[in-house]
Design a protein around this nucleic acid. Structure first.
Ligand SMILES: [Mn+2]
Ligand SMILES: [Mn+2]
Ligand SMILES: [Zn+2]
Ligand SMILES: [Zn+2]
Lengths: 156, 156
DNA sequence: ATATTATTGAGAATGATACTCAATTACATC
DNA sequence: GATGTAATTGAGTATCATTCTCAATAATAT
């Protein structure tokens, strides 16, 4: 199992792309970032590292990181495209609280099975799937006094 | 079951908002639109109807249509936010071909059940969920000579 | 008819992301 | 190590969807 840096280096070589200091600084920033982040977060992390890679280069590098399988666009939250590291991590889906923005990750084996079934039925070859659930987290339910109405069987 | 127009009128009255000619023309445009559409599509449909409602008004009206339960933002496709009519329609999810952009709709009862389970487990109250599958449609598979590798059990 | 607000269109502003281009650099080869 | 070539960079500009501003207009309640 290669490190993020090694894998990126390897990917670039494969494609006859250059391993520049800027790209190295970006991959170092990615490694330090936790959870979900956007282009601006990468840029800010670079600032913290005393690196002055430009925002343009950050945007140019994101597709490379995606193609190399290190990160992935995982959700849209509040108009922002959020990425997260996926190398050597298990895939999962997200719940987003529409009140406080909290993101809860979950993994459910059945979701994967369902995707297979559905794709088979429609002769579709999936490259990815995303299940996004929006609603209210526990804290916000209490805060906003929202009562849980379990829609076991919705009255159509 | 009210018509789209009547329901919108009712919604506006409830909120002490005005039922203007512009809003009427927009709801008429919505009724005529099929499938998934964006703000620009609504604007173009208005042009076809010889209406000269401005694009600004279209954007201003979309949240009203959403709040009134007539339309819903259903997917992001090629950087565009797509809406669709949901009044008196069954909810469903989408597969999007990343090659040709084709959108396939599907409904799966189990997806609904899963959401309930997951939300219960995390004490989350869902207001909506979206399952989006990206990949290649049948035609594009053939065109691009992509072979179906059914990941019944992926080699981790 | 009048008063009170909401609504409108036009155009400007915004913000995220992409593009342009001249200067610089990485890497392969000698 | 020097050279050639193509890739990369930063800065600034452009783009494009969406939102905002504001003065003029219009919808309802009284
Ligand atoms: Mn995640
Ligand atoms: Mn649909
Ligand atoms: Zn919350
Ligand atoms: Zn296709």
């Amino acid at each position: 199992m290669l490190s993020y840096k090694e894998r990126f280096k390897y990917f670039l070589k494969e494609r006859d792309l250059k391993y520049t200091p800027e790209r190295e600084e970006i991959i170092e920033a990615i490694v330090k970032l936790q959870k979900h982040f956007d282009a601006e977060d990468i840029y800010q992390q670079l600032r913290k590292q005393k690196s002055d890679v430009s925002l343009a280069t950050v945007y140019r590098t994101i597709p490379l990181l995606v193609d190399s399988g290190l990160i992935m666009e995982t959700l849209h939250c509040r108009e922002k495209v959020l990425y997260e590291k996926i190398y050597n991590k298990r895939r999962h889906d997200h719940m987003v609280c529409i009140n406080c923005g909290k993101i809860i990750e979950f993994y459910n084996e059945d979701v994967e099975k369902l995707q297979d079934e559905i794709c088979h039925k429609y002769q579709f070859v999936a490259t990815e799937h995303r299940l996004g659930i929006k609603g209210y987290c526990k804290e916000c339910q209490d805060k906003l006094n929202i009562k849980v109405t379990h829609s076991k069987k919705e009255k159509n």
